[in-house]
Design a binder for these strands. Sequence first.
RNA 1: AGGCCCGUAGCUCAGUUGGUUAGAGCGCUACGUUGACAUCGUAGAGGUCAGCGGUUCAAGUCCGCUCGGGCCUACCA
Length: 822
Amino acid sequence: MDFPKRYKHQEAEPRIRRMWEEEGIYRYDPDSPLPCYSVDTPPPYVSSAHLHVGHAMSYSQAEFIVRYKRMRGYNVFYPMGFDDNGLPTERYVERKYKVDKSKISRREFIDLCLKETRIGARTYRDLWEALGISVDWSLTYSTIDERSRRTAQRSFLELARDGLVERRGEPILWCHRCATAIAQADVETLDVPTRLHDVAFLAGDGRHLVISTTRPELIPACVALYVHPEDGRYASLVGQQVEVPLFDYKVEVRTHRDVDPEFGTGLMMVCTWGDMDDVVKWREHGLDSRPVLDPRGRMNELAGPYAGLPIKKARQQIVEALDGAGLLAGGRPLDHKVGVHDRCKTPVEFNHSPQWFLRVLDFKDELLARGAELVWFPEFMKARYDDWVQGLKWDWCISRQRYYGVPFPVWYCVACDQPWLAPLETLPVDPAVDPVPEGASCACGGTELRPEEDVMDTWMTSSLTPLINARWAYDDEERMGAIYPQSIRVQAYEIIRTWLFYTVVKSHFHTRSLPWEAVMISGWGLDSEGRKMSKSLGNFVEPAPVIERYSADAVRYWAAGATLGSDRRFNEQDVADGKRLLTKLWNATRFVAGHLGHGEGEDPAAGEPTAADRWILSRLAATARAATDAFERYEYSHALQATERFFFSDFCDNYLEMVKERFWKPERFAPGRVAAARSTVRRVLLDVLKLFAPFLPYLTEELYQLVFRRPGEPVSIHVSRWPEWAEGAVDPEAEAAGQLLVELLTAARRWKTAHKVHANFPLERIVVSAGNDRRAAVEAVADDLKAAAHAAEVSLAGGGEVETGVPGVTLALTLAAEPATR
RNA sequence: AGGCCCGUAGCUCAGUUGGUUAGAGCGCUACGUUGACAUCGUAGAGGUCAGCGGUUCAAGUCCGCUCGGGCCUACCA
């Protein structure tokens, strides 16, 4: 048999990949009678060029499960998507081409986005393919393609029809850098060292009323001062007007129970809108509005001499002016947690403008119930969902003042400003370029319409991935029935509050169901110090060179080491361990292949099995069961661990040593014994390869093709059947016998080591001493012991002096010759 | 401030529903091999399972508290 001495992954992996592609083994078959296992996998942002080994880790982990399910006989529906719309892409294009939306036309900007999108998609696909991710590329979607636009627009129209989407003007979270409204989920908090300034307001009696603020630039936006209603110090001031420092107007002193009398001086400045508290009081008490910031974050004319300044500059100058006027009473540093836009880290402000909202606040209970209905792997990740839903404060703002995204299918009546919604049959539509649909007219009678210019939040589209996959927007009932709700959503934990939550929302409203039956949450790949990988920290490990050096299988091996949902540090040593496993598998198979003969040993029941054969078959069954149980719990790492332990310890260290003699000197054994060795070793090794196949798809495929595949058998190990075991295959008696055999063999090897001879050194005889209760057991393994220890004779008698791991059983050993001394 | 996760050998981590003497890989030391093995085998050193208290015949595992780390959420105007 032509079996290369070494496995060369650089050559093998691309070749095997081509074979998979030609045979189409990962293709979804809509006509298959098999049960469907459908996967909703994250469409990565293609524009960011930020892939590191952590991404390789989480995609691999999900894929272990997919491969397992495929081998269990499921008709797998596994599409990849590319998320190429929305702010991340825009931000990337702005940075790469040094443009922003004020300097370039909408059309040119979108063209750049599309261009980057295509480049990014290619990079991503190359990596997923190299890693051996078994997606069906014919099912690929992108979040800006026609199907996704139609799906997102239809979703919008149906939600609007049902009163779940509405257009309202209110203070909304706003990013000045991106010049757009954003949603609560787009905000993250950062620690920002800042300064708390004590500023004096002037009461009518000339008294200084000192308030503490981190936002002195919002003094011109001040609309009231607040005190606690029972704070005696200020009782006489309530209802009075006080002078705003530096700015020539007055505000009223009011009361609110939220004010903490212990904080600062117990006086609180309320502005047009520095934070959520300001919004609440503004709404509750009908306060005036003094918005001082324009949409780009500059002070407007209400700021008087400071008009035109950006926030930070205005703050600095106003502080100086206060100081100069003797109105700065003090200050101290403060570690402030500031809400920032997650995409650009710009502090979030409030802006009052009309936006589209999807109502979620009224449905918290229903959404929590959906979360409880979903099966979570691991279970503890559900808490993140519950916490997020319970903490929601805003309806979902879905409109963005941006260019590159799915347009709203909306026009406005020029006469009355009411929105006019495009009919379903026109979708997808882009009001910015498409003509107004024929016959469109407003309920007020107006016929002149202007297009909506905003685009949708990117999550409006990606929250529909299960419905995009199911071709919901095309009323494809066959596809819908086959794959929806999907079997599994796979993703990492940081987007539970966004992607997972929003997808649950959409499916709840559109199909009154969950989008999937279960969700599998992966952890993060961290650097060797346990830090998050990032370009700025310089701890970014790109997957491609690691794959090149150690193979994709070895990278996957590393990824499989993280238990479900937990983070894993990246160490090259772990990948090297994976490479070592590949070498060991290669060599073990090479050895076995050399002794299988041709066409022999096909029948697992052939021959006369020895105790060793029965033992390894029982261990195999136990291992397959453990791995299968683990996979059913999505604990891929436990499945690998069980398989690896069996392979190294039971199979290589012991069983192969036990059968060597039957392979080397078959003439000394009954033919049935030799046949049993061949059939058993073939059976066990094939099943071992199958148990490893989800983790090491390339190497196991190569070995399957080299040694095991026969005409009429599956074209690939990855579409072969997962190992099964018969009732009673795990045989306690066979295990006990094997255990005894291993103990005796170990004792014999230890003795040989002590006598400075190698493990295969021939023995003239082994005399086993055992009590009556163990004699029969020893006799049952004597032949295997003789072969494994390379002894000419094994007999039972008294008087052994060599201890074994079995109480009461001792050995006496005699070398067949004097060891050569050197 | 609240929630979740974590703290086990020098390093990276397993330890299922509580059950002998706490494990693996790597690393380290010694010896021996290399007739599947850019290897392998055998043996060894190395652990107050973060700490304290509780439940129990029995706790790394369950409960409470403390300390330390990470993440999430909410806040100090």
